[in-house]
């Protein structure tokens, strides 16, 4: 049976340390989106945390390129599911360290470099439900701001979003546990049973 944890953002290091792989969390507070281009920019240009229009310390960075709609006084979120996290593997450990994030959210899990950064910095990886874009958009109550919209476009900009009861599963925790890795090993064992193939 899995445990469900209600989390307020920004979260403390103690909050992050208390989470374990398999926990279902529901988050309330503010998060930011970032995908390929923002990551590349943060790592190459190294802007200081206070040079960004909103603070990232203690918050969750969401791998997501949303569909947004322009409204009279800003934006509303039409659809906002997770994108594949592995694409920013080469950048993420630096971003976690530099900006004090407590959570990285996306889909599919991340690699060894990020796993180590999660341990070193007290941060967790959260797997959001891929494709549940409308359900998740409805848990975003407010668009608080946006950065790099002109330069990177809607999908690649950094959006600052207020979420209420936003669900995800902890699949990599601060203690080195990695659910993706465990499941991959188990499925590989099954694959060998079904094929009799050698390690490749």
């Amino acid at each position: 049976m899995v445990r469900t944890v209600a989390l307020n953002l920004p979260m403390s290091k103690a909050d992050a340390l208390s989470l374990r792989t398999g926990d279902i969390v529901t988050m309330t507070g503010s998060i930011v989106t970032a995908r390929d281009r923002v990551h590349k920019f943060l790592v190459e240009q190294k802007p200081l945390p206070d040079e960004l229009p909103f603070g990232l310390s203690g918050t969750v960075l969401y791998h997501c390129g949303p569909i947004m709609k322009k409204t009279e006084n800003g934006f509303s979120v039409v659809a906002a599911g997770p994108t594949t996290s592995q694409r920013v593997e080469m950048y993420e450990s630096d971003v976690i360290r530099q900006y004090g994030l407590r959570g990285i959210m996306g889909k599919g899990g991340m690699g060894e470099k990020t796993r180590q950064a999660l341990i070193d910095n007290g941060c967790v990886y959260l797997n959001a439900i891929g494709g549940a874009a409308v359900y998740l958009a409805d848990r975003i109550k407010n668009v608080l701001g946006v950065w790099k919209l002109e330069e990177f476009g809607t999908a690649e900009a950094m959006w600052h979003l207020e979420v209420v009861d936003f669900p995800a599963v902890v699949t990599m925790d601060c203690h080195g546990n990695d659910m993706h890795r465990v499941l991959e090993a188990e499925s590989y064992k099954k694959f060998l049973e079904l094929t009799g193939a050698q390690k490749h």
Partner: peptide, 11 residues
């Protein structure tokens, strides 16, 4: 998504 006529997935 069906009821509000919005895309099922943002991609």
């Amino acid at each position: 998504a069906r009821e509000t006529s919005r895309p099922i997935c943002q991609d």
